[in-house]
């Protein structure tokens, strides 16, 4: 099956947040008791009950009072996913055949290492200490439906389809640079940006933390090979040099 992806175009987003509600509705997430803190943006952060939210980004502008951008924040479904890499519990995070990074609460052990592995600060933990995040509506897409957010988006700001087609679409509609085309093994949540990612509050070069890569490349194999080498060296010593026996001691004396 070809890899699927969301194409998010902040330039087409009108900030209506239908996607936030549709996401909650489909995933049966409960509402949070929020407060207006002087911004229209709410809830204030991703949470175990908020898989997707629109950030209201205000950028200085010469022509207007501000430039007001609406940017979705959610799991990016990395092709090379830091969360999956670091996760110690097999099956807690897994890749679906459509390429989404999904989770299984039954298998999650609540260690929160995925928070460290994620370059985008996405995973959240619920009251039972289980991971919660966008799954690209794996249950919907496996049945041939679009994710709830894409389905409800009235303006075409969130589109869903084959990843290659989404990249093509973005390029054809004048967004030469597709955020996430190549980074992190290619993101499953692509962004069509008109300007530098920083304008939208995103990292220019998102990456899995160096320490996690070092751990994965060196430390983890070292545990395996190190143990093996230590055992092998011991055996070698035993055969080649041999043990220190007390009899020899006696003989020496």
């Amino acid at each position: 099956m070809s890899r699927k992806a969301l194409l998010i175009s902040p330039e087409l987003c009108i900030g209506c947040r239908g996607c936030q509600t549709a996401c909650k509705s489909w995933n049966q997430l409960s509402a949070e008791k929020t407060q207006n803190k002087g911004t229209a943006e709410n809830p204030p952060d991703l949470s175990p009950n908020v898989y997707n939210r629109i950030r209201y980004v205000e950028v200085p502008s010469a022509a207007n009072p501000v430039r007001w951008l609406f940017v979705s924040q959610r799991c990016m479904h990395c092709g090379d996913a830091g969360c999956m890499k670091i996760c110690p519990a097999p099956g807690a995070l897994y890749r679906t055949k459509e390429g989404a990074v999904a989770f299984n609460k039954e298998k999650c052990i609540g260690c929160r290492l995925c928070i460290g592995g994620c370059p985008f600060n996405v995973p959240r933990y619920d009251a039972k200490d289980k991971i919660a995040k966008c799954t690209l509506c794996s249950d919907r897409i496996s049945a041939g439906l679009a994710p709830a957010c894409a389905k409800t988006c009235p303006s075409g700001a969130i589109r869903f389809g084959d990843r290659d087609a989404m990249i093509d679409l973005s390029k054809k509609t004048g967004y030469a640079k597709v955020y996430g085309e190549a980074d992190l093994g290619g993101l499953g949540t692509l962004f069509a940006f008109r300007d530098a990612p920083a304008v939208y509050g995103m990292e220019e070069k998102p990456a899995i933390p160096e320490s996690v890569i070092f751990w994965n490349r060196i430390l983890r194999p070292l545990a395996y090979w190190g143990l093996g080498a230590a055992v092998a060296a011991s055996l070698l010593h035993y055969v080649a040099v041999g043990p220190k026996r007390d009899e020899e001691v006696k003989k020496d004396e």
Binding site: R112, G116, P209
Partner: peptide
């Protein structure tokens, strides 16, 4: 930050 350092 601490989580990652600890992990390392």
């Amino acid at each position: 930050k601490w989580l990652l350092l600890s992990h390392l």
